[in-house]
Each structure stands twice: as structure tokens, then as C-alpha cells.
Amino acid sequence: MGVNQQTLTIRLSEMKDAQQIMDLDAVVWDDYSSPEPLDWTSREDFLRHCQPGSQFVALVDHRICGYVGFRYPTLIKSNRHVYEINIAVHPQYQHRGVGTSLMDMVKEWASEQGMKKLSLRVLASNSGALEFYEKCGFVREGQLINEFLVGGRYVDDILMGYLL
């Protein structure tokens, strides 16, 4: 059931990928997976926040089916050994190895860049994502209680980390 590794290509994002990534964001980020749906107002808005080369994209038959973004969590120099990541995989490609391949790529690349840690945040209500991150070796480092009001109920924000 996995995606054939010969048909899956992973590379750094390029300017030409903007619209496909924006389309993927519209499908993936909803009240279940995010504190609020991700709605880019324009291509320029997207590119201001997600510059080319700030994520790895996974392609099957030249179509983006997932990505993992990375950035410094703060502007503080003493925090420059950490990348905060976010990952999205199109529902049609979930549970087929795309997410794991993206995670393996960002771990390897971040390590080669001298990073010592990856961190991420995930809603406590998103049990599938929590299970996936734990399967990838991430550990829970903290929990922000009632951090978001989503769909009329308060949801905790789970902080997770992976030491490289």
C-alpha cells in the first residue's frame, strides 16, 4: 500500500511549487488539525511566510502530495540549533510512507546543517498526528492546557521534540 519509492521524489521547494502547496494547505489544515484553517490571501502572502527552500516537498507523478517545512523557532542566536517543523500530507497519500519519508529527509538534512533538535506543536485532539510523531521518535516535552478554542471547545497544544 506504500508509495513506490521510485515514484516518490523529495526535494527542496521552489518558487513554482507555491500554488500546489497552497492548495494542499487548504485540504489538510482544518479545525481537527490546526487551531484555525490555513487560508492564504494570495501567492505573495504565502511566499512571504514560506519562502522557496524552506520546506521539502514530496512529489508523486510531478504533483506535490506532502511537505515538511522548517524554520528557526525564534530570532534568538542561542536557539539557532533548533528547527521548528510542520508537516502536511494529502489525505489520499496518508498511511503510505510519504510522511515518514519526509520526516527521514528533514532529520537527515537538519543534522547535516548542524541542527541538534527538531520541535513541533500538535493539537491534543489530533490523535493520528500524535501517534505518527511518536512513531517517528518525537517525545512530548510539554502541554499548554486549553491553549486554543476550536469548534466551541478548548484544546491543549502538545509540544514535541526530537534530538538529532
Score class of each variant (00 low, 15 high):
Ser125His: 07
Ile85Arg: 07
Gly66Met: 06
Gln113Asn: 11
Ala58Ile: 03
Ile21Trp: 08
His95Ala: 12
Ile145Pro: 02
Ser111Val: 08
Ser78Gly: 13
Ser127Phe: 01
Glu36Thr: 08
Asp61Ser: 06
Ala124His: 04
Glu14Lys: 15
His62Leu: 13
Asp45Ala: 12
Ala88Cys: 06
Asn126His: 06
Met105Ala: 10
Val28Arg: 06
Phe138Trp: 10
Asp156Gln: 10
Ile145Leu: 13
Phe56Trp: 02
Gly151Ile: 08
Gln143Tyr: 03
Phe132Ile: 05
Glu134His: 06
His49Val: 03
Val28Trp: 01
Asp157Thr: 04
Pro91Asn: 12
Tyr72Thr: 09
Ile10Glu: 01
Ile145Cys: 10
Asp25Phe: 01
Ile21Tyr: 12
Ser101Leu: 09
Glu44Thr: 06
Glu134Cys: 15
Leu59Trp: 00
Thr7Trp: 07
Ile145Tyr: 04
Tyr72Lys: 09
Val139Ser: 13
Gln143Cys: 11
Pro35Trp: 05
Asn126Gly: 06
Ser127Cys: 06
Arg43Ile: 11
Val98Thr: 01
Ile158Ser: 01
Gln5Lys: 15
Met115Tyr: 13
Arg43Lys: 11
Gln113Gly: 02
Asp104Glu: 12
Asp17Val: 04
Glu112Pro: 01
Leu164Asn: 11
Ala129Trp: 01
Tyr93Asn: 06
Phe56Arg: 10
Val139Met: 08
Glu112Gln: 12
Gly142Asn: 11
Met160Trp: 12
Ile10Ala: 01
Leu144Asn: 15
Ile87Leu: 15
Leu75Ser: 14
Glu112Arg: 14
Gly137Gln: 05
Ser78Pro: 04
His95Leu: 08
Leu75Trp: 03
Pro73Phe: 07
Val139Gln: 14
Ser78Arg: 15
Arg96Ala: 12
Leu38Met: 13
Ile64Pro: 02
Val89Leu: 03
Glu112Gly: 07
Phe70Leu: 09
Tyr67Phe: 13
Thr7Asn: 10
Pro73Arg: 09
Val106Cys: 04
Gln20Pro: 02
Ile64Asp: 00
Leu159Val: 09
Ser78Asp: 05
Val139Leu: 12
Asp39Thr: 13
Ser111Tyr: 10
Leu47Pro: 08
His95Lys: 12
Phe70Thr: 07
Leu130Glu: 00
His90Gln: 05
Thr100Cys: 10
Gln19Ile: 07
Trp29Glu: 10
Val150Asp: 10
Gly53Pro: 14
Thr74Asn: 03
Trp29Thr: 06
Ser34Cys: 14
Ser34Ile: 05
Val139Lys: 10
Lys107Tyr: 05
Tyr162Glu: 04
Glu44Ala: 12
Ala58Thr: 02
Thr100Trp: 09
Cys136Tyr: 08
Cys65Tyr: 00
Asn86Gln: 09
Phe70Asp: 15
Ser42Val: 02
Val122Leu: 04
Asp61Met: 00
Met22Asn: 07
Arg140Phe: 00
Cys136Met: 11
Ala18Lys: 13
Ser127Pro: 02
Leu123Tyr: 04
Asp61Gly: 00
Val89Asn: 05
Arg80Asp: 10
Gly128Arg: 08
Lys117Asn: 08
Tyr32Glu: 15
Asp17Leu: 09
Phe132Val: 01
Met103Glu: 02
Met105Lys: 14
Glu84Pro: 03
Leu163Asp: 04
Arg71Asn: 13
Leu12Lys: 10
Ala110Arg: 13
Ile85Met: 05
Tyr32Leu: 11
Ser54Cys: 12
Gln19Cys: 04
